[in-house]
Design a protein around this nucleic acid. Structure first.
Lengths: 202, 202
DNA sequence: ATGTGCTAGTGTTCGTGTTCACATGGCGCC
DNA sequence: GGCGCCATGTGAACACGAACACTAGCACAT
């Protein structure tokens, strides 16, 4: 099953709740994402019977269920490694906090950036990574360093006992099997776009 | 067919070429991405017979073919809208330039950021978007503005005749059917990670 | 209390994408 | 020049996810 869709639904439910909508049908949800209503129902029914026949789904109830499934009912402390352009963009990105991801420590090798606080979050030298990650019980790490240092950072995170890594560096990194690793390659997205442009120009 | 994989292959071939490797087999390629070798061959054979039986694929030849298929053999001028944290991160991101994507104009509504140049690229007020995009023949736009203004920016880009949009704003935006639209939602990626963490903690 | 309408849940069908296994065909060595 | 090697290319089997169409159940009106 595609977990991504659950995230999308959750996002949508948050919006609907803000707008004061009480119930929503699978049909309505489907239309917002060009999906099939049956698919929405299957996705949701997979985890339990959240809907009410004849009515639809109660927005706040469904939201709570999905958040629980996605593990968003709690706060996740996150370590951000790399505080360059991308790192600060991610740090200031509003979307993370809204879903319960709290960047609770930033690491960077540049001494000029270290040993100060940004919005109450400490920026620390990379050598303190292991200790801090353990001390703060951090399970998620975000890698936002240049390609060259991505593998070294990953190894450090792994050694510190992190459970999941979101990698923004444009290289394939290797991590122990028990660590969930997800790559976000910004230029791959652009490349698929250019493929379609090139094709239609052909 | 998943175009994403072609991008991934290309990335790998660039690396192999740098390392001085002349030929590569589908098996070797597959191992690098935990794929099936048959799948690699199918992906590649779909566009032509690039391999040599008994040998494998010539790295530089295959790279050139894939780049052509992906439209990476040429330069794509790109418009970047939004020059906040994320915008500058994207602007400085090395990966784009390497694949032929050249950000040739930046737009922002903040007058403090406008009417100057960054690394030779002009930062212009958003109201000039339409004119500049047309004048420069820009076909690809990157939306890196807050959620609130994403739709307005999209409409402007569409009116300016842009062909493809890469959207980083965490909202679903609507664009005319003939515009290729791709969303990158940074927190969805984190959410899938938290799903697996929450599951294994269960 | 009963019927009607609406929408969730679900077995089945359908299509796409992945894997398997084999035949095909260059290349080099004898 | 012929023969064997080895990796590609590809038809067939398979699996997974998406779409359809039907059934079940709740709410509200009569």
């Amino acid at each position: 099953m595609t977990i991504r869709r659950l995230s999308v639904y959750t996002r949508c439910l948050l919006q609907l709740e803000e707008d004061g909508v009480k119930t929503v049908s699978s049909q309505e949800l489907a239309e917002r994402f060009n999906l099939n209503s049956a698919q929405v129902r299957k996705d949701l029914a997979y985890f339990g019977e959240f809907g009410v026949r004849g009515i639809g789904y109660y927005v706040s109830g469904l939201k709570a269920e999905l958040q629980k499934i996605l593990g968003l009912h709690r706060e996740w402390p996150v370590a951000l490694v790399g505080f360059g352009n991308l790192g600060s963009a991610l740090f200031h990105y509003k979307g993370f906090a809204r879903q319960g991801f709290r960047i609770s420590a930033i690491f960077d090798d540049d001494p000029a950036k270290c040993n100060r606080e940004v919005n109450g979050v400490p920026v620390l030298p990379a050598r303190e990574l292991g200790r801090e990650v353990k001390a703060r019980g951090i399970q998620i790490g975000i890698v936002a360093v240049p390609a060259e240092s991505a593998q070294a950072v990953t190894d450090q995170l792994a050694a510190a006992g992190i459970k999941a890594i979101l990698n923004f560096a444009p290289v394939r990194i290797r991590a122990p099997r028990d660590i969930r690793l997800k790559d976000v390659d910004l230029s791959i997205e652009l490349e698929t776009l250019s493929f379609y442009l090139a094709k239609s120009a052909r």
